[in-house]
Structures are given as C-alpha cells and as structure tokens.
Amino acid sequence: MDDHHPAGFRTDEEPTIYHAVTSPYEIPYRCLYSRDVPNLFFAGRDISVSHAALSSCRVMGTCAMLGQAVGTVAYIAVARHCLPKDIS
C-alpha cells in the first residue's frame, strides 16, 4: 500500500510511505453507508476511512468490489423493505 502524507508533497517528511500487506483484509460494511442519510451508500474512493486505510481501498480492483457489495446490499434492502444499517 502506498500511504500519501496528509500534508501532500510539500511536507518535510517522506511524502509516500509503502506498507506491505501480507494477507487479505476486510473492509467493514459500516464504511459503505451513511449514518446521517438513511438510504445513502458509498462505494469507491468516497467511503468512510482514514487516509491510511484509503491507501489500499482507493485502487480500482477494490473500488469495483465495493461497488458490487453495495449493489448486492441495495437489492437486499429493497427486497426486505429495510435500511442499509439494518442489514448485517
């Protein structure tokens, strides 16, 4: 994962830090829906994560998987007549 410094390229510190990922990891479902807007999902680079977590989930393959997950859960929410937060 390449972690870009929050201050950008004008920082005196290393602007990019590379972290090795040794195994698959999970992205919590709660990152994909809004806690303030009842029926709003996020998929891709706009999910709720820290800048460090964004270093791995902003890549296209992960964004595509997040989109597939949100589409599946949206279908389940409509079929069950419930909100995204009600699905676990």
Rank of each mutant, 00 (worst) to 15 (best):
P24N: 05
D3Q: 06
A74T: 07
V21E: 13
G61D: 09
S56A: 13
D3Y: 13
I76F: 04
P38G: 05
T62F: 03
H81C: 03
V37P: 00
H51L: 03
Y75N: 11
S88F: 06
L66N: 03
V49L: 07
M60K: 05
C31S: 14
S48H: 14
P84G: 01
V21I: 15
G8F: 00
V21Q: 07
V21L: 13
S88L: 11
L40N: 00
H5R: 09
V49T: 15
E26R: 15
I27C: 02
R45K: 08
Y29G: 02
H81Q: 12
S34D: 05
T11S: 05
Y25F: 15
P28F: 02
D2W: 07
D46H: 01
V59K: 10
P38L: 14
S48F: 14
Y29A: 06
D2S: 07
A64R: 06
A53H: 05
K85S: 06
P38E: 14
S56D: 06
R35M: 09
D46E: 06
A77N: 01
P15R: 11
I87Q: 01
H4S: 10
A53E: 05
C63T: 02
T62R: 01
E26F: 13
H5T: 03
R30C: 13
T16P: 00
A77W: 03
P15T: 07
S56Y: 09
A79N: 10
H4R: 13
M1N: 10
